[in-house]
Amino acid sequence: MSREMLINLSMLAVLILTGVIAHLAGQGFVVTLATKAAIFALAGMGLNLCLGYGGLISFGHAAFFGIGGYVCGILALHAANAMPLVAGWSGSNQMLLIWPLAMLGAGLIAVPIGALSLRTSGVYFIMVTLAFAQMVYYFAISWPQYGGDDGMSFYTRNQFPGINTLKPFGFFLICAGVLVVVTAVIALITRSRFGLVLGAARQNRIRVEAAGIRPFPVLLTAFVLSAMITGLAGALYADLNRFVSPTMLSWHMSGEIMVFVILGGVGRLCGPVAGAGLYVLMEHLLGGITDYWQILLGLVLLTVVMLAPGGLIGILSGRARHG
């Protein structure tokens, strides 16, 4: 096992142990912080698949994060009020049903966005994904039925068989479990034939074409998969706060998801875990010192970009990324 893989695994372990120890010590608040970090890490994992492995710099992943959140919120709202949603079916409060639907929702929107954005590359791609996310954002604002600008709350967390999701630790276990499963899936994807082509398309699209492989379907698939994972994170985030609002869709959120990936290390398996953990930690610690903690966050980010482009995992593994 390489040094980087060990570091990846220990990042996951640190996050999970933080939750477990905080629970044993009776620190419910810290458990919730760890839950938030796990969810952000999951959102970053999604982005990392297309940004890190596929080289597609999407500045619009908040759209998928928010869509996942809204699917969760809408289903829960209809279930709680027994309001019919489609064909007499009135939503659901079962996470096991909500998750696939949230992923499906994010994925379905990602297909046209990805297909159109992939006609462009470079800076155009960044700006176009940003613009599409803004489109979704304005749509949510102008849709009064589900809260419009104010967002909507739902009063109880959705259910998972055998676990009391209202207990912070129960919900933490669910989020951490999802994160571990997704990490494993991404590790498998990047080692598969598909993952190899994806990495190749990042490095040199023309060569991939010359080798007889069309990069477009591969890149589009990666984009859609990435959106689905981020959408799943959005559904969990909605459940964490029991609230969804257009803020989840805003361009600032897209920037934050990108920050998770880059703080941890672009294209490193558990980079987003390290990045999201660091972000939540900074938000908590620096936020305690000053209300203007984002100035400090900005300076930290600048330092990372200028001096340590490999992020936290890059520093720890002491090795430039290849492949």
Partner: peptide, 24 residues
């Protein structure tokens, strides 16, 4: 000379610094 990702991130960081600075 860096790639666009670094530029996006560094200038995003600058936004945070300027916006929060102005709020301050």
């Amino acid at each position: 000379a860096r790639d666009h990702l670094d530029q996006v991130l560094a200038t995003f960081a600058l936004i945070l610094v300027f916006s929060e600075g102005c709020r301050w």
